[in-house]
């Protein structure tokens, strides 16, 4: 007879609420989305009425020129913003990691952009980028330069949305990098000064390597976010001109609402999810490999 020891069940009972919430809030929608991606589903139908089409949605997507375009725009956007934000954010943190009077005030001001609703950010930048009355072109004109077609030229539009995203999200990296910097062992930095490291050498040999674990997680978080960004671009360019700023999430939203193809939208979402999943897992595997390699080298060296 199988008897269950109640003591052994205790941990599972404590885990149960979290597991149930996870199941409903996370796994159910994902399962739903995966299922929907195999359907030819119109918003006017209930899900049960939709036709099963198997992998057709995916097959179509891979051949769809504009989807591929949108995919590359997303990749370009995400990597550009994360790279630039990391450089600027970490740079600012290194610059401001000192006891300046009013530093806490300054820090609050720095993180303000992060707190503004994305729609508002989008509107704000759209007005600033306005070809005639926007502050950028006004300023350029007053200095005697040609105005720039910020949002109306397909070469400039991607750059423009990248600039706006950097403005909004660099503070996120800044505060995390600053927190990481301020928790570094002070004495190791002092030892580096005694060992003869210049300011730059301290940054590259000591500070950044020690901040690396935090920076990797930060970059990953930003990358995931950048792949999903929607509102700011929706308001600023709505994907245009042409497809020049139509990133994936925007295309997904339009496929669902304008083209009324929920199945295709679900398939796109799944591909995006897969991409992010691969990125995250890839990062962890890379870390693991690095650790193992270091351990192996060490072992070999010690045996020798």
């Amino acid at each position: 007879m199988l008897r269950i020891n109640p003591n052994r069940m205790t941990p599972y009972m404590f885990l149960a609420p979290a597991a149930i919430i996870m199941a409903f809030a996370l796994l159910y929608p994902i399962g739903y989305m995966v299922y929907a991606s195999f359907l030819d589903w119109n918003p006017s139908q209930r899900i049960g009425e939709a036709d099963w089409v198997g992998l057709r949605n995916y097959a179509n997507l891979l051949q769809d020129e504009s989807f591929r375009e949108s995919f590359f725009v997303t990749i370009k956007f995400a990597f550009a913003v994360v790279t630039l934000e990391m450089i600027i954010g970490v740079g600012l943190a290194l610059l401001l990691d000192r006891n300046i009077r009013g530093m806490s005030m300054l820090r609050t001001i720095f993180i303000l952009p992060m707190m503004i609703a994305p729609i508002v950010v989008g509107l704000m930048w759209r007005y600033m980028y306005h070809p005639t009355v926007g502050i950028f072109n006004q300023t350029l004109k007053s200095w005697g330069f040609e105005p720039i077609p910020w949002l109306s030229d397909s070469n400039w539009s991607l750059i423009s949305i990248i600039i706006a995203d950097i403005w909004q999200w660099t503070p996120f990296i800044f505060i995390l990098a600053l927190a990481a910097l301020q928790s570094l062992p002070r004495s190791a930095l002092e030892a580096a000064r005694i060992d003869g490291a210049t300011g730059w050498q301290q940054i590259f040999y000591i500070k950044i390597p020690l901040m690396m674990p935090v920076l990797i997680v930060t970059a990953l978080l930003r990358l995931i976010d950048a792949f999903k960004v929607l509102e700011v671009i929706l308001v600023m360019t709505n994907g245009g001109p042409g497809l020049s700023t139509e990133i994936m999430s925007l295309r997904i939203a339009r496929t669902a609402s304008e083209f009324r193809e929920l199945g295709v939208a679900a398939a796109m979402s799944n591909l995006l999810l897969l991409l992010l999943f691969v990125l995250t897992v890839g990062m962890f595997i890379y870390n693991k490999i690095q650790e193992n390699r270091a351990a192996r080298i060490r072992k070999v060296a010690e045996e020798a």
Binding site: S187, A191, L210
Partner: peptide, 10 residues
């Protein structure tokens, strides 16, 4: 210099 907490680079 030798530090109290050794201050090695981790």
């Amino acid at each position: 210099m030798v530090f109290q907490d050794y201050a090695l680079y981790p």
